[in-house]
Amino acid sequence: MSDVIQQFQETIRSAATRRAPLRIRGSGSKDFYGLHLDGDILDTRAYSGIVEYEATELVFTARAGTPLREVQEALAENGQTLPFEPPHFGPDATFGGCIAAGFSGPRRAYQGSARDFVLGVRMLNSSGEDLRFGGQVMKNVAGYDVSRLMAGSFGTLGLVLEISVKVLPGPEVEQTLQFGMDESAAIEAMNRWAGQPLPLSATCYVDKSLYVRLSGAASAVSAAQKKLGGDAIEGDAFWYSVREQTHPFFADAKSLWRLSLKSTSAPLALGPTLSEWNGSLRWITGAGELERMYASAVSANGHATLFRSGDDVAAIQQLDIGMLTLNKKLKQALDPEGIFGPRRLHALF
């Protein structure tokens, strides 16, 4: 594999010399996301495979190009999971893309995000230097937390080669419950239940129904089911459809907005809505006007992203001037030649 790294290094150094943009890419399952997709493709799939996994350490390390499904199969053999339940958005999604995108699935509000589970990275910077940050241990506060900074950076700060994540045992049993109610009542119920010691692992409100998933020890799940009531739903298909956006709600959406808000925010009346994460994540379809979406999100203590757009690429929430300057300076510090995915995340960096 060292020859692959060498090739990556040559590609990066050559691009840096020419100041030519590079587009770090796995299978392209998240190509829909971002402002601009400029540059020659650097395909991470050449660098694939599990580096180290010992189930009793709860630490898993793999190369960026490893298919995400392969990662999850290896974990499942030991009854373990990626606790942030990442969406794949394509059959060949890679582990590297999963972390670079930093997207998390239904379990996020209860277990944490992709970023939360990152323990360490090995990466190449814009000089092609081979760097390691964080580690393969649960707790590590030596140096700035560069590895978690990579989560959600979409390959704009460097080429991540290997990632170590914390993994957890999967639940003994899961049970989904369905409740008919209106949106306001659902927001209230999700938040109230999240404040109680219940084995919640997902909530979603769509089509006048609240869906709640319980996960954990059989005894705890059945006790909670008794307490909450609702109609029992078989299987995991519903949560798959929410996570992968194959649910009919997403089907004919020209534009898909993602609003990340304070969980108790009242219904927004901006268009058809699917809410997750106790109401702190709201998906809204319809061609909402940009400024109105941004303003609504800000008034609900959050931000909005045009996640998918019928045209070509999505728009990401503007940053205030202070944060914009800081983000821009950070990008320049870590990628002085500006070769890694320029303007994918923001028009100005």
Binding site: R115, D145, S260, H303, M323, N327, L345
Partner: peptide
């Protein structure tokens, strides 16, 4: 002396994850 709000009351914030970067710095 510049005052910044890093992170948000939702589960994520726009831009790079500066909350992770400043925590433990």
């Amino acid at each position: 002396g510049e005052l910044l709000e890093i992170g948000g009351e939702g589960f994520d914030a726009p831009g790079y994850d500066l909350l992770a970067l400043v925590t433990g710095s």
